[in-house]
Amino acid sequence: MRPAPEQASDVPLLQWLEVLRDLRRIPDARPDEVLARVQRFVKGLSPDQRRRLVELALRQAPPRARAVLGAVLEQQADKKGAARLRATLNPLTTYRLGLSAAALPNCAAWNIQ
C-alpha cells in the first residue's frame, strides 16, 4: 500500500517513480528504452518539479529507483538533487537492472549494473 499523494499534481511524478521501481518488468520494453523515456520526462521538468520528484523519491521510492533517478539527475546537471539521493543509498549495494553503460554512462558510479 502506498500513501496517498499530498497534492493532485504529485500523481504524474509518482507514476514515473513507479516506472523506475519496475524498470526491469515493464512488458514489451527493454530497460534501456524505458530509461530513455524517463530521461526525456525528467529533462522536461521545471526545477520545482524536479525538487518535488526528489522529495517524493526520498520518502517513497526503493533504493534501486533512487539510484537510477540520482544517476539521471546527475547526468542532467542537477548535482544537488543527485547528492540528496546518493546520501540515502548504501554504497556497498549493487543494483542489477539490466541497463547498459551506453544508456546511462554514469551507472558504475551509482552501482547500477
Rank of each mutant, 00 (worst) to 15 (best):
P3D: 12
W16D: 03
E6I: 02
L73N: 03
E33T: 12
L104H: 03
Q75V: 02
E55V: 06
P62V: 09
V42E: 11
W110K: 12
P105S: 13
A83M: 13
D28F: 12
P63R: 10
Y95R: 08
R25Y: 08
L99V: 05
K80N: 11
L69F: 00
V19I: 15
R2I: 06
Q49W: 08
T88I: 02
G81E: 05
I26F: 08
N90Y: 11
E55G: 02
L20A: 02
A4R: 15
D48V: 09
G81Y: 00
P5K: 08
V11D: 00
A101V: 15
R21S: 14
G70V: 04
K79T: 14
P5Q: 05
A108V: 13
P5E: 04
L35T: 01
K79C: 06
L85P: 08
W110R: 12
A65Y: 05
A36Y: 09
P105W: 14
V38N: 05
R40I: 06
Q60E: 15
A87R: 14
L53W: 03
Q39E: 15
A101R: 15
A83N: 11
R66N: 03
V19Y: 07
P47Y: 14
S9V: 03
L56F: 06
S100R: 08
I26W: 07
P31S: 06
V54G: 02
A101Q: 15
P47L: 13
A71P: 01
L99E: 05
R50I: 12
R86M: 07
K79L: 12
A65V: 05
Q60G: 08
K80M: 11
T88H: 09
